[in-house]
């Protein structure tokens, strides 16, 4: 990059600041700096600032790595995600198998079936677990195409949908995706906050009359689910009951 005996240029000075000047060039640059006090002054300041910056960041480098950044833990989380996907596939296969010859089963079905709200909450939770950890493709259609997204999901669901504005709670719409949901289509809208925390709103058709909010917690993820006008709704996020309730209420009001 530098010519050994050419005139001193800016590149030489930068390399001098970084201590990367080839040995043969060193003396020439020092001689030049001795003759040019203005240049020497600014180069000295550059070196001081470089050292100060390194010094300020030394403590950060020396800190112990927090457990959430241990590769073993990150790997375990990835394995969990894959297990969830496998379970989802296994569950859908089971539904087909059972459905094939399940006449006798139908009689008991009514009594055994969990309340619809619980089913909606469970579907929402499974979808949350699958997609919220997704780094590359968390959503199918990003919020940049919000109009298209909403139109598409509304058509597939058979319900005019809207993306509730959750900015008052610090959550911004990332986008959404279409999912299989209990024999018809389901929609998942994903939001995130400034810290990257993700929240999903899950909607699918559901039988049954209006219900009260039903709260469910599964590990970190908390869900409020309810049935309203033939559709099941669920709001899921890694939050406390108290944090999630006002968000669920806002979503309820938006659709009611």
């Amino acid at each position: 990059m530098t010519i050994n005996d050419g005139p001193i240029v800016e590149d030489d000075l930068q390399a001098y600041v970084d201590g990367r000047l080839p040995e043969v060039r060193h003396a020439a640059v020092e001689a030049y700096l001795a003759q040019n006090p203005d240049v020497r002054e600014r180069i000295t300041l550059d070196i001081r600032q470089r050292n100060a910056l390194r010094g300020q960041l030394e403590g950060k480098f020396a800190e112990p790595v927090p457990p959430r950044l241990w590769l073993a833990n990150i790997r375990a989380a990835r394995r969990n995600t894959m297990m969830w996907r496998l379970k989802a596939v296994a569950a859908s296969l089971l539904v087909f198998t059972v459905g094939a010859g399940a006449g006798w089963f139908a009689a008991n079905h009514e009594a055994l079936a969990p309340p619809v709200t619980t089913a909606v909450a469970q579907n929402a939770n499974a979808a949350y677990r699958t997609y919220v950890v997704e780094v590359a493709h968390p959503v199918e259609v990003a919020s940049a195409q919000e109009a298209h997204l909403i139109q598409w999901l509304s058509r597939r669901l058979g319900k005019p949908l809207a993306a509730p504005d959750l900015m008052p709670f610090g959550y911004r719409l990332m986008g959404g995706r279409l999912l299989p949901g209990n024999g018809s289509a389901a929609a998942q809208l994903m939001y995130d906050d400034a810290s990257g925390k993700r929240l999903t709103l899950y909607v699918r058709a559901a039988e049954g009359s209006e219900t009260a909010f039903r709260f469910q917690r599964d590990g970190e993820a908390a869900t409020f689910a309810w049935i309203d006008q033939g559709f099941g709704f669920a709001v899921t996020a890694p939050a406390t009951r108290e944090e999630l309730l006002p968000i669920a209420e806002a979503v309820y009001r938006r659709f009611n």
Partner: peptide, 15 residues
């Protein structure tokens, strides 16, 4: 936020 960024970096690197 810095550690979130590092975590995402490591997840992406592994995948």
């Amino acid at each position: 936020r810095a550690d979130d960024l590092v975590q995402d970096t490591l997840e992406r690197a592994l995948s």
